[in-house]
Amino acid sequence: MTLLEIKHLNIEFHDHLIPETVVFDLNLQMEEGEIVGIVGESGSGKTMTALAVAGLLPRHGMKKTGEILFDSRNLLFCDRKVLRTYQGREIAMVFQEPMTSLNPVKKIGWQVEESLKIHTDLSEEERYSRVVQVLQDVELKNPEEIYHKYPHELSGGMRQRVMIAAAIVCNPRLLIADEITTALDVTIQDQIIKLLLKINKATKMGILFISHDLSLIRRICNRVAVMKDGYLVEEGLTDQIYQNPIQEYTKRLIAAVPKCEKISLEEEEV
């Protein structure tokens, strides 16, 4: 079943004298429980696409056309009230920077619980046990202890786990992961990727995985979309794209992944 369908999405900023288009005519489809990757260099419109799906684009100073269909409802133009019933409950998002994504003056438990408070009418004890459960699901040790901690007491990797916990606490059907591993070191990256795969397997949650790291995309995604300068360059099954890239840009992108070899200076000059 189709979970998300993006049709002819155009995003244009009008807050300067010259309008600037950041996404051109994007088409993308996602099945239920599928992991789709969007890959591209900085400024290619990956994050803008993600924000559009999450309904976080600013309301003023920009022109949006096209459709983002979720449950056959166009999220791009629906009422803020309707949008809010989806946000957090059906669609959740995790940001890139775990250090600033948590409110410094609120306890971890409170922040994870927030989504439940807004979308469900569970009692306080039910919410508490659900939060502890979720913190355990994201493989944090001593969830009861972490519940009462403040963000500054946790490391970057732990915070990113908390962010994932806060995102999946309502069992959304779509999780948007916007470069969630970029700010983390490699070993933590690996753990987070495994965690996402585990969650995907356990709950059939669709994941829109945005990254500029091709090797990560290859490990986690079923399908991948390559973006450049706001255009969708190529889209298809991950293995296919990696083995037989059709577009020149994709080929160069794959070739640009550094290999584990010592680079000598002479070689670089050639």
Partner: peptide
């Protein structure tokens, strides 16, 4: 414009 405020918006807080 802080990330955690965006995050709150994202989970549907009014």
């Amino acid at each position: 414009e802080m990330d955690y405020v965006q995050q709150a918006k994202l989970i549907g807080a009014g």
